[in-house]
Design a protein around this nucleic acid. Structure first.
Lengths: 260, 260
DNA sequence: CCAAAAGTGTTATGTCTACACCCATGA
DNA sequence: TCATGGGTGTAGACATAACACTTTTGG
């Protein structure tokens, strides 16, 4: 693997001590962690598991596990997601970072590769598992430190949120948060929750509908809420979200930002 | 680290065979590879090294090496960059991916974490090293397969280019490509080379100058080229490029794209 | 009927593009 | 002086934001 051309015998190119022998490589454990995000009660939630053993026993953590030698990183992430949720949907798994600080695991050298997964209907999935060891928690509770996480998982979650914010802008990942059919108000709520902004419903509708083939009207309508109101049209996701996004960019100036 | 809560004895949550014992973890070698990009002769170039040993002996590869147990991934990347170029500039090192396919190294299980570095004046640096084992090659030659790379390094370079395209848009990384002082034409050439587009000089100037504090006029002027022309103002980079970019977005429609 | 939410129209403002035009230099 | 590239002006196309107004529901 990638041994430098300036091998053991060659003096270092730039004054760095060549005190390292590439022929003996240090072994690492490699894990894959998956930040699973979903919308619940109008806010962004993450699926966390409670650790059953030391270190950090009893604390919340991102689900994850060892990479196996015969699988790729993507396959490992897909496997972890499936084991945790039963969902088999590789397309919305995005690798967003690798973490290898020496002390991130007190027991050994561990490098972890982090993935982001965006799901809908995780509530039902979590309810089906042992409630004691998996839960959907508000992301804001994690970010503010109300819930604190094992290892460097806070940092990983922070990076995942950063990433999903960008994904929302440049891909159409928003539809992954909502059900198979959805109203534009639900879709708008995704942007508002993730970006923490307030969007004009009228203008939002126009932007989304203008993005050709991105959402498709089903002809059916949603039942209004208890407070009444005109029933909303139901849409389904159109072609996959790889081409470019529907709603453009976070506000150019700080305007319209809403305080948490 | 990150062992699932559903440990060895607990049956798997979702029908996945629980045939894996987390207490024995498989060891991996972890390396850090750095894709070093620079502008040379008006086009995008990458710094490659020639492999001195098997496998892929004699082929070109991205510089890289083992992560040491006591350093972070960022530190390892910084060290590799310094060893290869003598440049000590951590701020422009960006992690952009991890690669761990089982067969990517025929000798053993290697997971590599890839970084992007953008430099100026690499030409002089490379000239100072043994020309036989390091060279600046046009990125286009790599992407078209004219030069082929060891391991899965082609894929890594492709991803690095993807990344720098985005970085150019959302950060101000463009100034990292040019000298300490530069003309707006030089800066524009960076965008044109990386995005493979043709930009209107007049509009480019306005966009850049409008981005407040992003480039700062020095009051000095560049000597015109041999063909004459009005001497251009010299600028220096302003505050660091983390806030948001100067030139916005790749063209919304395919227009203005230039064929390679 | 009233409140609430969905959806449409309209207008002011801002941004982007193309391109005409002037400026300063080398040969 | 002409060719070349730097820099400014400007008008139309287009995008965005704000908000008034109409529609359709529950109570």
């Amino acid at each position: 693997m990638e041994t430098k051309t300036s091998g053991a015998g060659v003096p270092s190119r730039a004054g760095v001590p060549a005190d390292y022998d590439p022929s003996r490589f240090p072994p690492f454990a490699v894990t894959v962690d998956v930040v699973i995000l979903t919308m619940s009660e109008g806010t962004l939630h993450a699926l966390l598991v409670r650790r059953g053993e030391a270190p950090f026993q009893g604390m919340w953590a991102i689900p994850g596990g060892f990479k196996r030698p015969a699988e790729t990183l993507d396959e490992a992430a897909k496997r972890e997601l499936a084991e945790e949720t039963g969902v088999d949907a590789a397309s919305l798994l995005t690798q967003f970072g690798a973490y290898g600080d020496p002390e991130r695991d007190p027991r050994m050298n561990v490098v972890t590769v982090a993935y982001l997964a965006v799901l809908r209907d995780v509530g039902a999935i979590v309810a089906g598992t042992d409630a004691a060891d998996a839960a959907l928690v508000p992301v804001s509770d994690v970010l503010t430190g109300t819930i604190d996480l094992a290892f460097d998982h806070l940092r990983i979650v922070r990076d995942a949120i950063q990433r999903v914010r960008v994904e929302l802008e440049v891909t159409g990942i928003a539809t992954a948060f909502v059900g198979a059919t959805f109203t534009l108000a639900e879709l708008r709520a995704v942007y508002e929750a993730v970006w923490n902004v307030q969007l004009d419903a009228a203008n939002f509708r126009r932007s989304v509908v203008a993005e050709d083939g991105w959402v498709i009207p089903t002809g059916r309508r949603a039942r209004p809420g208890a407070a009444g109101g005109r029933p909303a049209e139901l849409y389904r996701a159109g072609r996959a979200w790889n081409h470019g996004g529907p709603i453009r960019r976070l506000p150019r100036n700080g305007k319209r930002e809403v305080q948490a």
